[in-house]
């Protein structure tokens, strides 16, 4: 028997992984070498002792540090992507083939606007501006809802960003945002939905929607975003929700800790 095979048998013996024929083989090999199976008992005892050696649990700080690092990295990545997108957009505008067309279009638009402004009565101009503003608002809603249905999470994130930047949201947009918060499969999108909804936290429907969503979420990161958001808007009605999180068996320890901090800040 070669050395490799012998060591394999000995290690398997120590792991209690030998069947009767392999054990017989090992015994006869040891006998040929002038030993017996009992000579391995010291090693066996050592291995058994190693298997029972206790080890302390890592502290909670390890988990906290990891999630803080993850959050920072995610934010940095988002910033980099945003800069890339803007750079790409600017580059595409100034591409040689597009630039003259864009310049002509701007001049014609400006001339058209000037003619319209000088030849239209003031009240009519105001009406037109109001009408255009309403049309733009409804168009934005349509675009936003359509983008929220897109399969790519990046498109849905863009739609949420647009809504946040627009500064106002109709009832139907709020409903779409709440539905995204509760049903979107991507945790990043759900977190972005929280941020967008927080921009409209002056509305009752938004505040109650945020609170209802906390216990429905299965991602600790989304729950943390929601808890932080509810603390930021000083929503005292969130205290019972935080208490339920603390007593929940399913909530992540970090979420529970943050909820405790939240209660201390809100009471």
């Amino acid at each position: 028997m070669n050395k490799d095979k012998l060591y394999e048998l000995i290690l398997d013996y120590l792991d209690d992984n030998l069947d009767s024929s392999q054990l017989g083989l090992l015994k006869s090999e040891l006998k040929n070498m002038g030993h017996n199976i009992n000579d391995l008992s010291a090693l066996q005892k050592l291995v058994d002792e190693m298997d029972t050696m206790p080890i302390p649990e890592p502290s909670e700080q390890m988990s906290k540090s990891f999630y803080a690092m993850l959050e920072q990295q995610s934010n940095e990545q988002e910033e980099v992507e945003l800069v890339d997108r803007i750079t790409e957009f600017i580059r595409s505008i100034f591409q040689a083939s597009h630039f003259p067309r864009l310049a002509y279009a701007s001049i014609i638009l400006f001339i058209g606007w000037g003619i319209g402004f000088w030849f239209t009565p003031q009240s009519a101009v105001e009406n037109q501006i109001n009408q255009m503003s309403q049309e733009m608002q409804s168009m934005r809603e349509v675009v936003m809802v359509a983008m929220m249905d897109k399969p790519l999470a990046s498109d849905r994130l863009k739609a949420l960003q647009m809504t946040r930047e627009s500064g106002n949201a109709t009832e139907s947009i709020i409903q779409t945002l709440l539905s995204t918060l509760n049903n979107d499969p991507d945790a990043n999108v759900r977190m972005a939905a929280v941020e967008t909804l927080l921009a409209f936290a002056n509305q009752d429907v938004v505040r109650s929607g945020l609170k209802e969503s906390v216990l429905q979420q299965n991602s600790p990161l989304v729950q943390l975003t929601l808890v932080d958001g509810l603390i930021a808007i000083q929503d005292k009605a969130a205290i019972p929700v935080f208490e339920r999180l603390i007593s929940s068996n399913n909530a992540h320890q970090l979420v529970k800790d943050r909820s405790r901090e939240g209660i201390n800040k809100l009471i």
Partner: peptide
């Protein structure tokens, strides 16, 4: 690019 998924691997292996 889905960095948050690293959390799952952390939970599986940190101990």
């Amino acid at each position: 690019g889905d960095l948050n998924k690293l959390g799952i691997l952390f939970e599986r292996y940190n101990r």
